[in-house]
Design a protein around this nucleic acid. Structure first.
Lengths: 263, 263
DNA sequence: CGGTATATTGACTCCACTCAACACCAGTGG
DNA sequence: CCACTGGTGTTGAGTGGAGTCAATATACCG
């Protein structure tokens, strides 16, 4: 038997929820066959090994990127030199929209990734000719706006446990998932930055969730939800009625006063 | 001489930073005269007294809105019944993009406002015909994405003072400003929700800033920055080296050790 | 296998949340 | 004019949880 090669067709992919159509599940492919090939015609395929910086903030921006495979993070450097991760992008996403000819953030492949690089002037011309494609892109933009707001919803939580649970939930819905195990592509540090807590707080939250048998990490990059009910409660809101403390905290030296009975 | 009426022309207004053009300042009008009138033709003007709910989350969505005057907040109700404000919108903004025919958030006028209501199917048809308009809208979407990320950047700060300062800075840049006094249209509660801290923490931050003569509130809805340098430092990052504590906190009981010298 | 980066756990401090009281203003009605 | 009211904002303690510093453990990659 000859060596079998799996030839994967690489083509632009825009996933999202349409404005009006009643789509079954959530995200569907937004592009028709014609639109796909029209985009493919003006773009080129680029491959990024893990860690590749696709573009840098403030650099001249001539192209937008449509991710076909992999995971990419976009981040910006804050005035105090720390970096803030603004988003993780999966297959079907679009990123690299410029401001006055310059990127506003940097992009880096979290795992080996494949993308379509589309010159922005060619895209502009294509859109002017093909109006319905503009609607699709606008729809995708609205989709990504929802993701940004979801990010904000994570960040307004002030309990590390809740933020972490919401992040895992996000990975389940946005990222690839096989059986009931979900892929956790990024480093702990990246995830912690994204949800706005320290690495340590995140690690503690993770341990607490495992101790309480709510989730399980099969390895550092794959997890599964064991107790869907409690997990959803955590994601939904306050309900974290002592999910599991490290130790009963057997009163070391301090006399504890007023036990909270907040219902 | 007959009674003079001040007739203000109400027309769609899309402001934002273009992808490529070198615009002088930041935001410019994105629409040409033709595009403006094309949009005006398919839309109707709506006036909202303060507090009006323009649309509700989960309601059937048939229109998008382009704000011409005023301030509108969009918010969603979280699973635990609290509400989270996802954004404040000013003149030139676009909101109400639907998901599967339903709004994903509610919108409410913070002050009396005027907007263009544009049926989404008419917009769709117009975009299909007029491709370059699609580019403009996409550009506006990118603009609003940057605002969402700015919101996220506020939320990752973990000091109430910094969040508040960043919020004031946002108002200065996005909202209307006369002379050196900036308009603070929303209630303290709304602002606090937006930046993800409690009303009390925000009030304290505000007081601290006034005590340190960094900003001054001429009244509850107008402020000015007195010390631009320190203000910018606060906005930029960590630099809040005791901007002003309520009391010197003269070492209550504990002798302080280890002064941090983190460079 | 060794060396480095990454991740976990522990101890301690500090800031923001919580609860609570009070100040301020507008509108209402005597 | 004043008291009453509710909404809104400010200020005051006390507590808890996340940040910080530090040590250890584990994974990753040559």
């Amino acid at each position: 038997m000859p060596t079998r090669r799996f030839q994967v067709t690489i083509e632009p992919r825009l996933s999202g929820v349409p404005f009006l159509d009643r789509s079954r599940g959530k995200a569907v492919s937004l592009l028709s066959a014609d639109e796909t090939s029209a985009l493919a015609a003006i773009g080129t395929v680029v491959q990024w090994p893990k860690g590749t910086v696709a573009y840098r903030a403030k650099g001249a921006a001539d192209c937008v990127y449509n991710l076909v495979q992999g995971v990419v993070k976009t981040y910006e450097i804050l005035p105090d030199d720390s970096t803030s991760i603004s988003g993780f992008h999966f297959a079907g996403d679009l990123f690299g929209l410029a401001e006055q000819g310059h990127y506003v953030e940097s992009a880096e492949a979290v795992i080996p990734s494949v993308a379509f690089r589309i010159p922005i002037d060619a895209l502009d011309a294509l859109l002017t000719r093909n109006g319905s494609l503009g609607v699709r892109l606008l729809c995708k933009a609205a989709d990504q706006q929802r993701n940004d707001r979801r990010h904000a919803r994570i960040l307004v939580r002030n309990d590390a446990l809740g933020r972490f649970a919401m992040f895992l939930n996000l990975l389940q819905e946005l990222g690839p998932q096989r059986a009931n195990v979900t892929y956790f592509p990024m480093s702990r540090g990246d995830a912690a930055q994204f949800i706005g807590i320290t690495l340590e707080a995140m690690s503690r939250a993770s341990s607490a969730l495992e101790r309480a048998r709510v989730v399980r990490f099969v390895d550092r990059h794959h997890f599964q939800v064991l107790d869907r009910e409690r997990f959803d409660q955590l994601v939904a809101g306050a309900y974290h009625p002592t999910v599991g403390r490290a130790k009963p905290r057997a009163v070391p030296g301090a006399p504890r006063k007023r036990t909270k009975q907040k219902q």
